[in-house]
Amino acid sequence: MGNKRKSKYVGSCGIYVFLCCPGTAPKLLVHRRSKQVSEPLSLAAPGGIVERSLCGVSEDLRWGAQCTALKELGEEAGIWLTELQAEELLDLPAAPGAYWGDGTHFNFGFVFEEIPEVTGPERDSVHEVVRDGLDGIGEPAGDGFHAWVELDELLEHPELMPACRDPIEHFARQGLKVAPGRRLCSDSQAKAPLAKKPRGSVARALNK
């Protein structure tokens, strides 16, 4: 019958950028998803679909998800983490029910202590987010698409994308116990340390 062609897409990911300035409540960078993507018009963090090609020859899905998360953060928000920052991503839990099956969605996070520059989506990603979609919600991030929203406000918002709730709630409970740039384990402690990287650093793999 011949070999069945492997799917180009193998999973999904989200990346949660927290702002934890001293003396203020933690905030999360979010945008409103457009009508052209799944979960239209919901509030969400950047994220995307993981392509098999980013998983390396060993087909390390978690590695591919990290690469994708960093790529999506750059393309959707204009934040390109440095190679050092990319090695300091937090592990955040994922809700069950991922499109490609349980264990195929990965959430990562990063904590800034100072407001980073948010330049907004690149041309090929503009269609994924709504301009001025966060009017009246949180504090504008300066690009016309994103806003910094306090976690409590976000968790109470009826338009928050359901899959975003678990990682935000987890960070709200435990994130402040971990210094910026330190790894955060999931509630169950079930996630193993990052798999051995098949090829250099994540950031270098993306040529960024």
Results as ranks from 00 to 15, higher is better:
Asn3Ser: 14
Lys6Met: 08
Ser7Val: 02
Gly11Ser: 05
Tyr16His: 12
Leu19Lys: 07
Leu19Cys: 02
Leu29Glu: 13
Val30Lys: 06
Glu39Phe: 07
Ser42Val: 03
Val50Gln: 04
Arg52Leu: 02
Gly56His: 07
Gly56Ser: 05
Val57Phe: 04
Asp60Trp: 00
Ala65Lys: 08
Cys67Lys: 03
Lys71Val: 05
Leu73Gly: 15
Gly74Ile: 08
Glu76Met: 14
Ala77Gln: 01
Ile79Lys: 03
Gln85Ser: 05
Gln85His: 03
Glu87Ile: 03
Leu90Met: 14
Asp91Ser: 14
Leu92Tyr: 12
Gly97Leu: 07
Asp102Gln: 09
Asp102Ile: 00
His105Gln: 11
Val129Lys: 10
Arg131Asp: 04
Gly136Ala: 10
Phe145Ser: 11
Phe145Met: 09
His146Ala: 08
Val149Leu: 03
Val149His: 08
Asp152Tyr: 03
Leu154Cys: 06
Leu154Pro: 02
His157Trp: 13
Leu160Gln: 01
Met161Asp: 14
Ala163Trp: 07
Cys164Ala: 13
Asp166Pro: 02
Ile168Leu: 15
Glu169Thr: 07
His170Gln: 07
His170Cys: 08
Phe171Val: 13
Phe171Tyr: 15
Leu176Met: 14
Lys177Gln: 15
Ala179Ser: 10
Pro180Val: 11
Leu184Lys: 00
Cys185Thr: 15
Ser186Lys: 07
Ser186Ala: 13
Asp187Phe: 02
Asp187Arg: 10
Gln189Asp: 15
Ala192Lys: 07
Ala195Gln: 12
Ala195Val: 01
Lys197Ser: 15
Val202Thr: 10
Val202Cys: 04
Lys208Gly: 01
